[in-house]
Every structure is written in C-alpha cells, then in structure tokens.
Amino acid sequence: MTSSRPAPSLPARLAAFSLRARIIAVLAATTVLATVAVVYTIGAARRAQPTDPASAFGLDHGRLYFRSTGAGAGRVARLPAPDGRSGAASAPRSGHRTTGGPACERFYAAAGTGLCLQRRPGIPPRSYAVVLDRRLREKRRIALTGIPNRARVSASGRMLSWTMFATGDSYATTAFSTRTSILDTRTGYLIKNMEEIPLTLDGRRYHSPDVNYWGVTFARDDNRFYATVSTKGRTYLVQGDMRRWAARTIRENVECPSLSPDNTRLAFKKRVRPGAGAPWRLYVLDLRTLREHPLAESRSVDDQAAWLDDRTLAYALPGREGRSSDVWTVPADGGGSPSLAVPDASSPVRVP
C-alpha cells in the first residue's frame, strides 16, 4: 500500500510564504544597510584624512610655498607669489592659501625637489629629513637627532642641506650646539655632520672642538656653498668647495647666509647688539666688492631669509595678535619698507 502525506493546508502555506518573504526582506534590508554603511565609512574616512599632497598640489613654478601656522597648521601651503616688482608684497593674503601639503617643521624646495624637516613626539622625540618629489611625495627619509632648524635646496634640486639643534634652541646665546648635514640627491651620498670639513681661518688651518656650522646655501654649480661657522664666541662666513671638501672664512659676523638667484649677493643676519635680546639685523653683502648694506627691516630677524627673486627677500617674524609667526618681505637694495606678505606662516620659498 502506498502512503501519501496530506497536502499542507492553505493557512500553513500562507504562513510559510510569509516567513520566506520576511527572511528575504530582512536579508535585502541588511544588504542595503551594509552597503550604505560601507559607502558612508569610506566617505567619512576620506573626509577625515589630510589632503593627499600628491593630489592637492605639487611644486609649481612661480608659487610661494610656506609652512602654515594658521589653517592647516604645521602643513605646507601655497599662494600665488607676491608681486616682486615693487620689492615687496602688495598686501597680506591669508584667505586663498591652498593647504594640505606634508607636515613639516621646516620646508624648502627648488627644481622639483622638496626638503621637509619633521619632528615626531615620543620619548625621546624623533626627527627626520624627508626628501620629496615634484608632487610632494616622499622619496627618502633620514632619521635625525635634535630640533629642526634650517633647510635648503640648491637651485638645481640636487644638493640638500639641513641644520639641527643638538643642544639648545636659539642662536642668541652661546649654550647651543648644531649638526649640519649635506645630501647629494644625484649620488645619494650623505655627509651626516660637516664639522670635519678642513677649515682655513685667517689663512691658517684651524682646529677647535667648539666648531659649529649652520645655514648652508648653495651656488648654481652645486659645488660652491656658503655657511656660518662659530668658534670661540665669534661667527664667520665661510665659502666651501664640495669637490675639494674644504672651507675658508671670508668675513666675520655673518649668520644664516642666503645666496641670491643671480649668485652675486648674500643676505644674512648680522649681530648688531650684544646679548640675547633682539641682537640681529638683516644685511646684504655684495660678493664682488665685499661691501654690505642694511635692509629696511629694523626688527631682529632670527631666520635664514629666502630670495623670492633678485630684488626681494622673505623671512619669518614672531606673529601679531596671537599668531605664532608671519612672513614678511623687504627690498634687497636697502630701500622701501617691510611688508606683511603672509600671516600665520613660516619657511617661505618661491619655486622659480
């Protein structure tokens, strides 16, 4: 005898259909919600992340780059370059800066190469020299010790130099020690500390344990350079030769030299008052005649001034109205007057 199972009743079939429908609806709703959550999470993450320097901006010709201390504090930002025709920026411009570059304590750039000095918290804090490409993407990272202080790139983008405070944090006193490095980006050769360079002072080979170098600036040939050396409480301008690896003093009381684009003049800060209170004034030295003249900026400038062009210098000063620092410009010929170029900024450089 063949047995047969009785067919489900209509109420039972309706109940089963309703259960399946509810399961399908729940699964569909779950899928939709999961998709929405993923999309929202990705979008929120993108909004929360700093702007990718590679997509935000690169090293474009004619732009003024600087470290922003206002919007996007600590990151590299840019503006159209100040109008150099009048020898100074026409007006401060803070509302149209493009932010989102790499985070740097000091920044400089030329010819598609950027140098970013970073300091990271920790015990002890960590510092790095980061070499950047034209799109401000990292190419090389070098671990350092100390506090970032000066950064320079040669006009060709080949030679890089940076100075770190090994002890102390100000040139205004004698209680400091520096370590200055030079990197040849073409060969990859790194001079970790240039204190061992053979030095000639007043025509004689000089040796002293208290020698400190800082503020390197390169000539267009990527061989000649200028820097400050201090010893026995005095500072000197030195001219160096990379191929011969030698340096000689050429003038006293010169700090943080900066070579003009035409390679004929050096801007520098000169100690005009003793002690640690506002001791310096900006000067320009003619390398052919070795004559110097003060600039119209009478305030004390503790910075390595940057040439925006052959007529105009930019530098940072402590900020006003609660700002940490501002960038100012002044004519290089000694005339005119200082002009506020960029509020809430430091480390100015114009990419030629």
Rank of each mutant, 00 (worst) to 15 (best):
P102N: 04
P102H: 02
P102K: 00
A103Q: 14
A103G: 12
C104V: 10
C104A: 12
E105K: 08
E105P: 04
E105H: 08
R106W: 11
R106E: 10
F107D: 02
F107M: 09
Y108R: 00
Y108K: 00
Y108S: 04
A109G: 08
A109Q: 04
A109C: 09
A110G: 05
A110K: 06
A110W: 01
G112R: 03
G112N: 02
G112Q: 06
T113H: 02
T113W: 02
G114L: 00
L115T: 01
L115E: 00
L115K: 00
C116N: 09
L117I: 08
L117E: 03
Q118H: 09
R119M: 12
R119P: 01
R120G: 02
P121S: 15
G122D: 11
G122I: 08
G122T: 10
G122L: 03
G122F: 09
G122K: 10
I123Y: 13
I123P: 11
I123T: 15
I123M: 12
P124H: 09
P125Y: 10
P125S: 15
P125Q: 14
R126Y: 08
R126H: 14
S127F: 05
S127N: 04
Y128S: 07
Y128K: 01
A129D: 09
A129L: 05
V131L: 13
V131S: 06
V131H: 03
L132P: 03
L132I: 03
D133C: 11
R134G: 11
R134F: 04
R135D: 15
L136G: 06
R137L: 08
R137A: 10
E138G: 09
E138F: 06
K139E: 14
K139A: 12
R140G: 07
R140H: 12
I142T: 10
I142G: 04
A143V: 08
T145L: 05
T145S: 09
T145I: 10
G146V: 03
I147S: 07
I147L: 14
I147M: 11
N149F: 15
R150S: 10
R150Y: 14
R150G: 06
R150K: 11
A151G: 04
R152H: 12
R152N: 14
V153F: 00
S154V: 03
S154Q: 07
S154T: 04
A155H: 08
A155I: 13
S156D: 08
G157E: 06
R158L: 06
R158P: 05
R158Q: 11
M159N: 07
M159S: 09
L160Y: 03
L160G: 05
S161C: 05
W162S: 03
T163C: 03
T163G: 02
F165Y: 15
F165L: 01
A166N: 06
A166T: 09
T167K: 00
T167R: 00
T167Q: 03
G168A: 12
S170N: 13
S170W: 10
S170H: 12
A172K: 14
A172P: 04
T173S: 15
T173K: 02
T174M: 13
T174N: 13
